[in-house]
Simulated assay, not measured.
Amino acid sequence: MDVSVLDRLPAPVRAELDRRQAALPAMAALVEADDDEPVLLAGSYATGEWNPTSDLDLLVLTKRHRSRRTPGTTNHPSILGDSFDGQVGDLPVNVEYVSAERLHDLAQVLESAAGDGGTVDLPNLQGLEIRLVQRMHSGIALSGTGELDRLRAGLDLDAVRSAATALAFVGTLSLMEDSTVLASPTRELMCRGAAESLLMSAVNAFGPLTHDGKHLLTRAARISELPQVPRLFSQIETLLFADRLPHEEALGLVLDLAEDLYRSFTDPRCPSRALPMLDPLVPAWAWTGRAWSAPGHGRGETGRPFLRKSA
């Protein structure tokens, strides 16, 4: 890659590279990109959330998949593409290559989420897919802006935020149901996982697309300063340590906050398809004894007393 592409790095990033003695020519030498392939600054350096342990991420949107291992790098292949780790000065650098074909496949999954007959399906997106969409939409274009705009248009951000919100919410209730039949210490592990999933759902609903725990707490803290957000954001520490509470208390806490969050999904700040994606799953939550209704959404279930799962 021509080193001039890196001249478009934001000034704060350039300053950090100078501090880390990361020379631009050495960084450019790690990247193999054709002139017509978009290159993005991605990850925490693109969002301004980097810390001393962060690597600098570059994403190359390729016309075709091919091995691009440069000397001194290690490869981490995946179904979406190859990811290479290298070192420039005092800075770890990751270069990821994703083909237009994979982006097209993902766009088709998102398009099919509209479903038939007015229904909205819940795409079963995994971490790498959510991460890719997050990097595509938050990344800073260093080259190929026109092609990048075209590719971004095919990746419906609202659909992905809706899916990330809904999938994490479903995971919360699934783990809490497990906690009603499993013995300690697995029960406590399920409670802790459920608490993190609920926070992940809330951050995706009210904040930026988030795929893992790295920036979860800092993003949640920023959301907590916004007006009229769910109660969960004022009880983050209590929620995340729910596994230390007696189980009945932990169960009540998580379900209370989950019910409050569910009602908030009608907020215009939330992705528009989260509730429709959850609708078909509501009957399976009868074990909670909760209503699972949202004002103005037009559906709800009659609450019943809490029933434990049979072992």
Results as ranks from 00 to 15, higher is better:
Met1Ala: 14
Arg8Met: 13
Leu9Gly: 05
Ala15Leu: 06
Glu16Ile: 04
Glu16Lys: 08
Asp18Val: 13
Arg20Asp: 00
Leu24Ile: 03
Pro25Tyr: 10
Ala33Phe: 13
Asp34Asn: 14
Asp35Ser: 15
Gly43Tyr: 02
Tyr45Val: 07
Tyr45Arg: 09
Thr53Asp: 06
Ser54Thr: 04
Asp57Ala: 11
Asp57Thr: 05
Val60Gln: 10
Ser67Tyr: 14
Asn75Asp: 15
His76Ser: 13
His76Leu: 08
Gly81Tyr: 12
Ser83Ala: 10
Phe84Ile: 04
Gln87Lys: 11
Pro92Ala: 08
Tyr97Leu: 09
Tyr97Glu: 14
Val98Trp: 08
Glu101Met: 04
Glu101Trp: 11
Leu110Met: 07
Leu110His: 05
Ser112Trp: 02
Ser112Gln: 13
Ala113Asp: 02
Gly115Ile: 01
Asp116Lys: 06
Gly118Gln: 01
Thr119Asp: 11
Val120Ser: 04
Val120Gly: 00
Asn124Tyr: 00
Gln126Cys: 04
Leu128Pro: 02
Arg131Val: 01
Met136Glu: 02
Ser143His: 05
Gly146Leu: 11
Asp149Ala: 10
Ala153Met: 01
Leu155Cys: 05
Leu155Lys: 08
Val160Thr: 07
Arg161Phe: 02
Ser162Val: 05
Val170Lys: 11
Thr186Gln: 14
Arg187His: 12
Arg187Phe: 08
Leu189His: 14
Ala194Gly: 15
Ala195Asn: 06
Leu198Thr: 04
Thr210His: 01
Ala221Leu: 12
Ala221Trp: 08
Arg222Phe: 08
Ile223Ala: 09
Leu232Asn: 05
Ala242Ile: 01
Ala242Asn: 01
Asp243Pro: 02
Leu245Gly: 03
His247Ser: 00
Glu249Gly: 00
Glu249Cys: 00
Leu251Glu: 05
Leu251Trp: 12
Gly252His: 10
Leu261Ile: 10
Phe265Asn: 01
Asp267Phe: 12
Asp267Met: 11
Met277Ser: 06
Asp279Arg: 15
Asp279Gly: 03
Pro283Tyr: 09
Pro283Met: 10
Trp285Ala: 07
Ala286Pro: 02
Trp287Lys: 11
Trp292Ser: 07
Arg299Pro: 03
Arg299Glu: 13
Gly300Glu: 14
Glu301Met: 15
Glu301Val: 15
Arg304Pro: 03
Arg304Asp: 10
Pro305Cys: 11
Phe306Ile: 04
Ala311Asp: 14
